[in-house]
Deep mutational scan, measured.
Amino acid sequence: DLPPEQWSHTTVRNALKDLLKDMNQSSLAKECPLSQSMISSIVNSTYYANVSAAKCQEFGRWYKHFKKTK
């Protein structure tokens, strides 16, 4: 379990794929700090720029909290 400071584009993509087993992209976009188009691009590997470090950390913090509450 990585601390949010160490999250990267790959970590975010893997976490998104895991979350999308249980929910669809639009529900996920309402919950998490990423937009639906960004989620779609990341999981389909069409998001060519890497997600910014700040966004990765924000998502990492959100993901840890989300997993605790589920």
Results as ranks from 00 to 15, higher is better:
Ala15Trp: 03
His9Tyr: 15
Glu5Ser: 06
Ile39Ala: 00
Pro3Ser: 14
Met38Pro: 00
Cys56Pro: 00
Pro33Ser: 02
Asp18Met: 09
Thr69Trp: 05
Pro4Asn: 14
Cys32Ser: 07
Asn14Met: 12
Arg61Asp: 07
Pro4Arg: 09
Ser41Asn: 10
Val43Met: 12
Asp22Arg: 09
Asp18Leu: 09
Leu16Cys: 06
Ala49Val: 11
Glu58Ile: 04
Ala54Trp: 06
Thr11Ala: 12
Ser52Cys: 05
Leu19Thr: 04
Lys70Thr: 05
Ala53Cys: 09
Ile42Trp: 04
Lys21Arg: 13
Ala29Trp: 06
Val43Asp: 05
Phe66Lys: 11
Asn44His: 06
Pro4Trp: 08
Gln36Gly: 15
Lys55Trp: 03
His65Met: 13
Val43Ser: 05
Ala15Val: 10
His9Asn: 11
Ser40Ala: 13
Tyr63Ile: 03
Ser27Ile: 15
Lys30Thr: 07
Asn24Thr: 11
Thr69Ile: 15
His65Lys: 07
Lys55Ala: 09
Ser26Trp: 07
Arg13Gln: 07
Ser26Ala: 14
Leu34Ile: 05
Pro3His: 12
Lys21Phe: 05
Glu31Thr: 11
Ser8Trp: 00
Lys68Gly: 07
Leu16Tyr: 04
Ser8Met: 03
Trp7Cys: 01
Val12Ile: 14
Gln6Glu: 07
Thr46Pro: 11
Leu16Pro: 00
Ser41Glu: 13
Tyr47Cys: 13
Leu16Met: 12
Thr46Met: 12
Phe66Val: 09
Thr11Asn: 08
Phe59Thr: 00
Leu19Ala: 07
Gln36Trp: 06
Leu20Gln: 03
Ser35Leu: 00
Ala29Gln: 06
Thr11Gln: 13
Asn44Asp: 05
Arg61Leu: 13
Lys30Arg: 09
Asp1Ala: 04
Lys21Ser: 07
Cys32Asn: 00
Ser35Thr: 15
Gly60Gln: 05
Met23Tyr: 14
Ser8His: 03
Asp1Tyr: 04
Trp7Leu: 02
Glu31Ala: 07
Glu31Ser: 06
Pro4Tyr: 09
Thr46Ile: 07
Asn14Gly: 11
Ala53Gly: 06
Cys32Pro: 01
Tyr63Asp: 00
Thr69Lys: 15
Met23Trp: 07
His9Gln: 12
Asn24Glu: 15
Phe59Glu: 00
Arg13His: 05
Asn44Glu: 08
Gly60Arg: 02
Ser26Asn: 12
Val12Tyr: 00
Thr46Leu: 05
Cys56Trp: 05
Gln57Arg: 13
Ser45Leu: 05
Ala49Cys: 14
Gln57Ser: 08
Val43Trp: 04
Ala15Asp: 01
Met23Arg: 07
Glu58Thr: 03
Cys56Lys: 02
Ile42Arg: 00
Ser8Val: 09
Lys17Val: 07
Asn50Ser: 10
Met38Asn: 07
Val43Gly: 04
Trp62Leu: 03
Tyr48Cys: 14
Ser26Ile: 08
Met38Thr: 09
Arg61Val: 14
Ser27Val: 12
Gly60Asp: 02
Ser27Tyr: 15
Leu16Gln: 02
Cys32Leu: 02
Asn44Gly: 12
Tyr48Ile: 12
Leu2Phe: 11
Ser35Phe: 00
Tyr47Phe: 14
Ser8Pro: 01
Pro33Gln: 07
Tyr63Val: 04
Tyr63Glu: 03
Val43Ala: 08
Gln36Ala: 10
Phe66Gln: 07
Gly60Lys: 08
Leu16Arg: 02
Ser35Pro: 05
Ala49Gln: 13
Ser52Leu: 00
Asn44Val: 03
Tyr48Lys: 11
Tyr48Met: 09
Thr10Ser: 12
Tyr47Val: 11
Ser41Asp: 07
Met23Ala: 04
Ser52Glu: 08
Lys30Gly: 10
Asp1Thr: 02
Asn24Trp: 02
Leu20Cys: 06
Gln25Val: 15
Lys70Arg: 15
Val43Arg: 04
Arg13Leu: 06
Asp1Met: 06
His65Phe: 07
Leu16Ile: 10
Val43Lys: 06
Ser40Pro: 01
Ser41Cys: 05
Ala29Asp: 08
Gln57His: 08
Thr46Asn: 15
Ala29His: 04
Asp18Gly: 09
Thr46Tyr: 12
Leu34Asp: 01
Asp22Cys: 12
Gln36Asp: 05
Leu2Ser: 15
Gln6Asn: 08
His65Val: 11
Asn14Thr: 14
Pro3Arg: 08
Ala49Phe: 11
Ser27Leu: 11
Asn50Ala: 06
His65Leu: 13
Glu58Gln: 06
Lys55Arg: 09
Arg13Lys: 13
Ala53Trp: 06
Lys64Leu: 13
Met38Lys: 11
Glu31Phe: 04
Tyr63Met: 05
Arg13Pro: 00
Trp7Val: 02
Glu58Gly: 03
Phe66Tyr: 07
Val43Tyr: 07
Pro3Glu: 10
Ser37Lys: 09
Val12Thr: 03
Glu31Ile: 13
Glu58Lys: 05
Ala15Met: 04
Ser26Glu: 15
Glu5Gly: 04
Leu16Lys: 01
Lys64Arg: 11
Val12Pro: 15
Lys67Phe: 05
His9Gly: 11
Tyr47Ala: 12
Asn24Gln: 04
Trp7Gly: 03
Gln6Phe: 04
Lys68Leu: 09
Glu58Trp: 00
Gln25Phe: 14
Ile39Tyr: 00
Phe59Tyr: 02
Gln25Lys: 12
Leu20Gly: 03
Gln6Lys: 13
Phe59Cys: 00
Lys30Tyr: 14
Ala15Gly: 04
Trp62Pro: 00
Lys64Ile: 15
Ser52Tyr: 02
His65Asp: 14
Pro3Asp: 15
Lys55Leu: 11
Met23Cys: 06
Gln57Phe: 09
Leu34Pro: 00
Ser45Lys: 14
Ala29Pro: 14
Ala29Glu: 10
Phe59Ser: 00
His9Pro: 15
Ala53Ile: 11
Leu19Ile: 07
Met38Gln: 15
Ala49Asp: 13
Ser37Asp: 15
Met23Glu: 04
Trp62Gly: 00
Ser8Asn: 15
Val12Gly: 03
Glu58Ser: 05
Val12Met: 09
Trp62Met: 02
Thr10Tyr: 10
Lys21Gly: 07
Ser45Ala: 09
Lys55Gln: 09
Ile39Trp: 02
Lys64Glu: 15
Val12Glu: 01
Lys67Met: 08
Leu28Lys: 01
Ile39Met: 05
Tyr48Phe: 06
Cys32Arg: 00
Pro4Gly: 10
Cys32Gln: 01
His65Trp: 10
Ala49Gly: 11
Asp22Trp: 10
Tyr63Pro: 01
Leu20Asp: 02
His9Glu: 15
Glu58Asn: 02
Thr69Asn: 04
Lys67Arg: 07
Asn14Val: 06
Lys70Ser: 02
Met23Gln: 10
Ile42Thr: 04
Cys32Gly: 05
Leu20Ile: 04
Ile39Thr: 02
Lys68Arg: 12
Thr10Gln: 15
Ala54Ile: 07
Gln36Tyr: 08
Asn24Pro: 12
Arg13Glu: 12
Ala53Gln: 14
Cys32Met: 02
Ser27Thr: 11
Ile42Lys: 00
Glu5Arg: 04
Phe66Trp: 14
Ile39Pro: 00
Leu28His: 05
Asp1Val: 03
